[in-house]
């Protein structure tokens, strides 16, 4: 079933592979409900979390997923300021290889770094977010979460709100949901819309109210606050007035619409606390599902012949 040794992005996955991961995750979710949450498949294997960008959530999720599978875990966090040249990245990768690791989970601010490592190393490379390219496990856990509420993906309307240009979460989710037959709407100011994104099968809305109408899933993206100083929008207040997800606006979506956010949230910027903590929010459920999905990815890649 799984041929590639790496998980680089949703782009590279077939629909069958996506469903296979989700089915496997479903089994692991059952494991996570047990009293004893640890299973043995990765005993004796080593997972290195190589994080060049600060991230708490994704790293601890991968760490716990690996530990639940009985793997040994090393956390290798490098602040980008100490990384001056590509040579360092290569050296770091070869060091990890020399240590005898079986998996490297990589987070980097520069798109394409997982692909570089994939060529350099014969061990499994898992992309935990690379620049504005992809964050595949986030999209997989989002699919898993939506499936658990909606039972199917095909035909759903997914509204993604916010900074699409700089968002790997948006990219991975566009690929994931369109591959499985959902309709994806992107809601953002024209300054935060990627170039020629219309070549993908998506709909674009500059108006939040229009874009929210009859949506099944409403996903708010985290806004990097420093975008304001680069002229993408004038002030955070103006951004919130135009694109902030409020309970009033959420009424435009379907009554049973669910609200998602990849975290960490800027409350009062892209999402109002009433919505984040409200009855339609599945944000904490996403976190739990992330664990099951990452266990599935590690488990499936461990079975690939290298």
């Amino acid at each position: 079933m799984f041929k590639a040794k790496d998980l680089l992005g949703i782009k590279e996955l077939t629909t069958e592979e996506i469903y296979h991961i989700l089915d496997t995750a479903s089994n692991f979710k059952d494991v996570l409900k047990r009293d004893i949450k640890k299973v043995p498949p990765l005993r004796g294997r080593t997972v290195v979390n190589l994080f060049f960008e600060p991230s708490t959530r994704t790293r601890i999720s991968f760490e716990l997923a690996a530990k639940r599978l009985s793997a040994d875990v090393i956390n290798f966090s490098i602040t980008t300021s100490s990384v001056v040249k590509g040579e360092t990245l290569k050296d770091t990768a070869l060091t990890i290889k020399a240590l005898g690791a079986d998996f490297v989970v990589i987070r980097h601010s520069s798109a394409g770094v997982p692909h570089f490592l994939s060529r350099l190393l014969d061990i499994s490379v898992i992309n935990a977010g690379d620049g504005a390219n992809e964050h595949p496990t986030q999209a997989l856990l989002d699919l898993f979460t939506v499936l658990s509420y909606k039972r199917k993906i095909k035909g759903l309307t997914i509204a993604i709100i916010g900074d699409i240009t700089h968002s790997r979460v948006a990219r991975s989710n566009i690929y994931a949901f369109t591959k499985l037959g959902a309709k994806v709407r992107l809601i953002c100011p024209p300054t935060l819309l990627p170039s020629e994104v219309n070549n993908l099968e998506i709909e674009v809305f500059n108006n939040l109210e229009e874009g929210l109408k009859k949506a099944d899933v409403v996903m708010a993206l985290r806004l990097q606050l420093e975008r304001q100083s680069k002229g993408f929008f004038p002030t955070l207040e103006e951004y919130f007035n135009l694109y902030g997800l409020t309970s009033e606006r959420l009424k435009l979506a379907k009554d049973d619409a669910i609200v998602m956010h990849p975290g960490p949230m800027n409350r009062g910027v892209e999402i109002e606390s009433d919505v984040a903590d409200g009855p339609q929010s599945v944000i904490l459920e996403q976190v739990t599902n992330g664990l099951a999905v990452r266990m599935a990815v590690l488990y499936l890649l461990a079975g690939v012949k290298k």
Binding site: G86, T88, L89, K90, H108, S110, G112, F116
Partner: peptide, 11 residues
Amino acid sequence: ADDKIGEFDSA
């Protein structure tokens, strides 16, 4: 080669 290897952004 050192100036071209690694991250696309910094090559």
